[in-house]
Nucleic acid binder design. Structure first.
Lengths: 328, 328
DNA sequence: CTGAAAGCGCTTACAG
DNA sequence: CTGAAAGCGCTTACAG
């Protein structure tokens, strides 16, 4: 390569960097050789020398939740516009796998790591701190954490949507919550938000009105069946996530329960299809793209030594459907 | 690191590889040091030396089509189980960006590249062939291409679903097709499949019954408005993708067109929410996970010099909804 | 403006 | 079973 254009490897390197230290005629010669030989710079060698890979890792529980996919798409765009590459790892809600993936990404040489919708496991963040890997967590404002977070207030969001239900005259309300083995900080906050709204109205929150289930669409069905077996049925079911709401909805359809006439339902996450379901479901839209973009921008700032503010709180937005009936 | 456990770097390296050439006691000492010092192997140096990064690149048009996300999730799982890392790039349906991303991935040192739902651009595959980068394309069986493909027969799939519509007694059928700037081989095949079904029944296929639109949900709405403005309205609208069908469906709801009473609709892609829309939409399910898995397995075989078969054709599956009315 | 040379942190024949 | 040494392909002071 260098030989082919009669220059040193140093000059080739300078041509490839922005350096305008190279004489135009030489540069042209080198560029011709690059094209002719189909030369592709070896990123590994560059990374070894410079200790920068221009690569950022993302760990996400699943791609099958469309708001996670949106966030990733947004951050990938921001990174790729800055000539950074996104390295993707899917943890499948598995704390151990998450750690393994982080270790793997670190070894792979990513310059920073973005954690999306992370589980409630300190070891991961500790590991990143130990190896001094820049990082930021999304989907949570990380109250009480001193590590960088970009997210929204899950507690407040759930409080708002519950309040919306209460404002429609419901007093007999249950909560369906993703939890069990997947319980994480978000889950706890969402539960707390529900409780906030209830108690502020003087409504009792007995453990019996909270259905904590594994996080998948089948749980919604199981929850609905249990709820519908009660002697005194609630008038509204608040779901802490759209996936669960979808499961509840499907079960209602099967059994022939009419929404919102027989029971009202709300979701949370603002999945873009909630409005298109057979009953448009009232849900809370989450700032997915904004979080993705903000995370990418934040880390690019860090890596390029620009001043930046680490902890950012964005807003949810209530999306009104037709799944909540006003009780008079 | 090597000093800390009183061995050479060679021995450390051997401990990290599977090599059982190291005495157990030495190995223990080294492992203790690794833990104590929080040592993380430098992947860039390893890649430079071995010319393997154990990293595979994926280029996808968007993550916001859930079948693409499913495929990626499946392939990521397969790769990560084999200790490979997935590098993600989103092309946004942009042929130029796609090329840029491929170049970037190559430079980054990925060992192979998976192309998902690629545009009809030979330059990309040519580039990969030139630099001898192993690759495989998904979402198409690549009839007539000598390069590795894993996919399904788009033409046959569209033929089948059109046939299903015709079998329900429809003779006045139109096709809504993603195309325009995003026209690709798939689009052409789907169109051909529609034509196959029509002509096999002796039905005419005038250009006027094919609505080729940009690929997004808004197009569905525009198409529906144009179709509904016709003096003689069709009894069925075949959509070449679920996203378009969703757009058409939304427009019908707005205008107050009842499905399937006023008009029948079908989709294509088998997005997992089609069955949950306000009218469950008959669609063709695409083997997304299977393609993702097969692609990962195929490339792992290539990279590890195992014999493997490159061109694989999987099957679609008709998912019956309630969006097609039987005409008597 | 350009080149010679060192060195990034690994792996791997080669000796022993 | 272990170590000394070469070398992977870059970048970057340092000279000139």
């Amino acid at each position: 390569m260098a030989a082919h254009s009669n220059v040193s490897t140093a000059t080739v390197s300078r041509c490839l960097s922005k350096s305008e230290l190279v004489r135009p005629e030489v540069k042209l010669r080198v560029e011709a050789s690059i094209l002719e030989l189909g030369y592709v710079l070896d990123g590994a060698a560059k990374a070894l020398k410079t200790d920068k890979s221009e690569t950022i890792g993302v760990i996400v529980p699943t791609l099958e939740i469309s708001s996670f996919a949106s966030a990733i798409q947004a951050l990938e765009k921001t990174l790729s516009d800055a000539n950074y590459t996104t390295v993707l790892a899917v943890s499948d809600f598995d704390t151990e796998k998450e750690l393994r993936l982080a270790r793997n990404l670190a070894q792979q040489g990513v310059d920073a790591i973005i954690l999306i919708g992370q589980e409630n496991d300190d070891r991961l963040v500790m590991f990143l701190e130990n190896i001094q890997m820049p990082h930021v967590s999304l989907w949570d404002v990380g109250k009480g954490s001193k590590y960088p977070h970009i997210g929204f207030d899950n507690r407040e969001g759930l409080r708002q949507i519950t309040q919306y239900v209460l404002d429609h005259g419901h007093t007999d309300v249950v909560l369906v919550l993703g939890g069990g083995p997947h319980a994480n900080a978000r889950t706890k906050q969402r539960r707390a938000g529900f409780e906030d709204a209830m108690t502020s109205r003087g409504l009792p929150v007995s453990p019996g009105i909270i259905y904590e289930m594994p996080y998948n669409p089948f749980s919604g069905k199981i929850a609905l069946e249990r709820i519908w077996g009660l002697s005194s049925k609630p008038t509204a079911i608040v779901c802490a996530s759209d996936i669960l709401a979808l499961g509840v909805l499907r079960a209602c359809k099967e059994i022939g329960i009419s929404i919102p006439n027989d029971v009202s339902i709300t979701g949370f996450d603002g999945l873009n299809i909630m409005a298109d379901l057979w009953v448009p479901v009232t849900s809370m839209s989450v700032p997915a793209r904004e979080m993705g973009e903000a995370a990418a921008t934040y880390l690019l700032n860090i890596l390029q030594n620009r001043p930046t503010k680490p902890l950012l709180e964005l807003n949810c937005k209530l999306i009104e459907g037709e799944s909540v009936k006003a009780l008079t």
